[in-house]
C-alpha cells in the first residue's frame, strides 16, 4: 500500500514486469540430463513476409534423441514468432514470458508492439534472465516491413535479412549463402528455408526428424509441420 508508483517507475527494464526473475536463479546448461534443442532454426525476411523454419529434434547433449516431433517455433505476438534454441526449459519459459509481456503491453496501448520493440524486449530478458543458454530467432512483420533478428544468450540483438541459429548453423548457412533473395516470393523463401534445414538435418547430429515452417505476414502467423523437409522442396 505504500508503493504509490505501483513499482512501475522504478521497475527494472531488463526484467519481465509480471513475474520478476528470482535472485540466484541463474543456472548453466552443462547438465547432460537437460533436454536441448541441438537445433537448426532459420529465419528469412522477404518483401511479403517472414519465413522461419526449424527441425523437430530434441536431444540430450546432442547424443541421444529425446523427442522427434518438437515444434520449435512459437507465436509470441499477433505477427511474430520466436524459435526455441538451447535448453528446452529455458526456451519455453522465455517464450511464455515474452508472449505475456507483449500481450500486456498490447492491451494497455491498444496496438501490438512493433517488431523492433519486441526484439529489444527479448534482448533485455535474455540478458537479465535465468533462461540457460538460449539463442532464438525472432521473425515478425509490422508497418515498417519484415524483420528477422537473432537474439544471443547474452542479450545481443542483431537484425538481418536472414539468419540461422543452433548447432546446425554452419550447414544451413552454406545453403543460404548466395541463394537468399529479398525479392523472392513467400513460396520461394519457404523452399529455401526447407533446403537449409534439410542440409543441416543430414549432417548435424543435433538436428533432424523433419521440418516446421512458420510463415508470418501482416495478417498473422501460420505454422505447419512436416515429417520430411522434402515435402516443401
Amino acid at each position: 500500500m505504500t508503493d504509490l508508483t505501483g513499482g512501475r517507475a522504478t521497475r527494472d527494464p531488463y526484467e519481465p514486469e509480471l513475474v520478476p526473475f528470482q535472485e540466484g536463479g541463474s543456472r548453466t546448461a552443462q547438465d547432460e540430463s537437460v533436454a536441448e534443442t541441438g537445433t537448426t532454426t532459420v529465419g528469412l525476411a522477404t518483401r511479403d513476409g517472414v519465413v522461419v523454419g526449424t527441425d523437430r529434434r530434441a536431444s540430450l547433449a546432442g547424443r541421444f534423441v529425446s523427442n522427434k516431433n518438437v515444434v520449435k517455433v512459437e507465436q509470441v505476438h499477433p505477427t511474430a514468432v520466436l524459435t526455441l534454441v538451447g535448453s528446452v526449459g529455458g526456451a519455453q519459459s522465455f517464450v511464455r514470458s515474452l508472449r505475456a509481456e507483449a500481450s500486456l503491453t498490447e492491451k494497455r496501448r491498444g496496438d501490438p508492439l512493433s517488431i523492433d520493440a519486441l526484439a529489444t524486449l527479448s534482448g533485455n530478458f535474455a540478458r537479465g534472465g535465468p533462461f540457460f543458454a538460449i539463442n532464438p530467432i525472432l521473425g515478425g512483420v509490422d508497418e515498417a516491413g519484415s524483420h528477422v533478428y537473432s537474439i544471443d544468450p547474452a542479450g545481443g540483438v542483431m537484425a538481418d535479412d536472414y539468419t540461422v541459429t543452433g548447432s546446425g548453423m554452419q550447414l544451413a548457412h552454406g545453403t543460404l549463402e548466395g541463394e537468399y533473395d529479398p525479392d523472392s516470393s513467400l513460396e520461394e523463401a519457404e523452399t529455401l528455408t526447407a533446403r537449409a534445414v534439410r542440409a543441416a538435418s543430414e549432417r548435424d547430429t543435433g538436428s533432424g526428424n523433419g521440418l516446421v515452417l512458420a510463415t508470418v505476414t501482416g495478417d498473422g502467423v501460420d505454422i505447419e509441420e512436416y515429417d520430411d523437409a522434402t515435402a516443401v522442396l
Partner: peptide, 19 residues
C-alpha cells in the same frame, strides 16, 4: 484505470502460470 491494469496483469499472469 488502476483496476483495469490489475486485471490486465492478472490475465497475463494466469496465461504465464497455466498457459
Amino acid at each position: 484505470r488502476k483496476l483495469i491494469d490489475v486485471a490486465r496483469q492478472q490475465a497475463q499472469v494466469e496465461q504465464l502460470r497455466y498457459d
